[in-house]
Design a protein around this nucleic acid. Sequence first.
DNA 1: CAGTGGTCTAGACCACGGG
DNA 2: CCGTGGTCTAGACCACTGG
Lengths: 243, 243
Amino acid sequence: MFKRSPSLVQQVKAHLKQRIIRVEFQDGRIPPEAELAAEMGVSRNTIRDALSQLETEGVIYRRQGAGTFVNQAGLLVKTRLDEIIPYETMIREHGFKPTVRLVGVDEITADPKLAANLNLPLEARLIVAQKLFLADERPVIFSCTYIPIDLIKQPYDVEDLRAPVYQFLSQFCQQEFGYYISEIVPVMAPEWLVERLILPPEKQVLISFEELGHNQDGEPVVMAYSYFRDDLIRLRLVRRQAQ
Amino acid sequence: MFKRSPSLVQQVKAHLKQRIIRVEFQDGRIPPEAELAAEMGVSRNTIRDALSQLETEGVIYRRQGAGTFVNQAGLLVKTRLDEIIPYETMIREHGFKPTVRLVGVDEITADPKLAANLNLPLEARLIVAQKLFLADERPVIFSCTYIPIDLIKQPYDVEDLRAPVYQFLSQFCQQEFGYYISEIVPVMAPEWLVERLILPPEKQVLISFEELGHNQDGEPVVMAYSYFRDDLIRLRLVRRQAQ
DNA sequence: CAGTGGTCTAGACCACGGG
DNA sequence: CCGTGGTCTAGACCACTGG
């Protein structure tokens, strides 16, 4: 029934999610794990891994001794903040048509904060790419990305900076992206941002993300600042109890 | 070596985390999974589950074919936003002494937003508990929690509302807490909040959490609004690539 | 090539829920 | 009590890394 790649768990997960979306489990009850395992010809562990992921996403919930159930409300959570999603996708999932404008690419010298975070000498040079994201032609997200020049191993075109940073890192820096450590900061929009995002006077309070991107070895490789118009893009997060 | 409860995975995880914190792996290299399994007398799967959790927390990273390595930087991420942490703990982890002031407990009638979110009739009554959290005696977090009165099954004392909501729900409402769906909203502090949090004029931009708490059946049971002084408490988040 | 982590299996036993 | 999900095991094979 399934191929060997992508992993069985991913295939089982996708399959189950489809069945949930198509409301094939009318009473909201998902068959027992053993039954699913037999049905799909995989082991119960594989089923369990897939179900665990769906549970984390909030699509189902499980009760020991009782069963596994669909959580239709969980399907409504589009933008999970704990996952890295291209801003275009985020905008699309909010129901808008996304556009990306590359509004500036410069070379700068590290300031003390960049140098400290990225573990660079103070005289290090970086590329800074400024991008404006629009939802149905309205500006909603502004981002600045800082990439140390010494990381760039391949010649690139300015247009290559239009893609998400992690793609750029993998293509031109031989760096596999690992994770962001992100700080969420509220800011009063400065004048230049009011102009970029065309903010009306009553909407000049913004969420800002200060993100330090790390490669798969846990080394900081890139910094990014993003600013969101929260009236159009809502940041949502599923929070669970520790342990 | 280990007892049966808590789970072996949790014990192995705690054990490994201790060894990492004590810098017992000087070269940053964690022994092979098979070796750890033999050493601790558990199966490799158990070791792997523990390591996976540590990897999610950013404490270690793994490279297929190469090995498992310590990520000392990951130990610095104190406040992981994707986990529910009592605000007292959050304050303590930022290096302050936490205090909780229960500043108000009232009974109100649902407004349209509360009613819609909590799936209540418009005339429903709710308890609203207002709490102020202090870090070293300085106010840093203000929270409002709304609990539908009909949920409360046991008599309670006002002081019981000082604890985190999920404790209250489990003790007095026979509701086991599941998860929050949280929206992050930037706000300009209104006058009453400026007074509560004693905000200087230049710090009146705040992060607000609008949280809808669900029980283990995925039903909304409680709403909470929280406001953070971000100069003292920084919200941090580990974000990873989807899939 | 040897050694590592990544995936999957089959089976066992436990803890909990509901009839 | 039975049937469910929760935990754990031992072992197999694969994919990748590094010398």
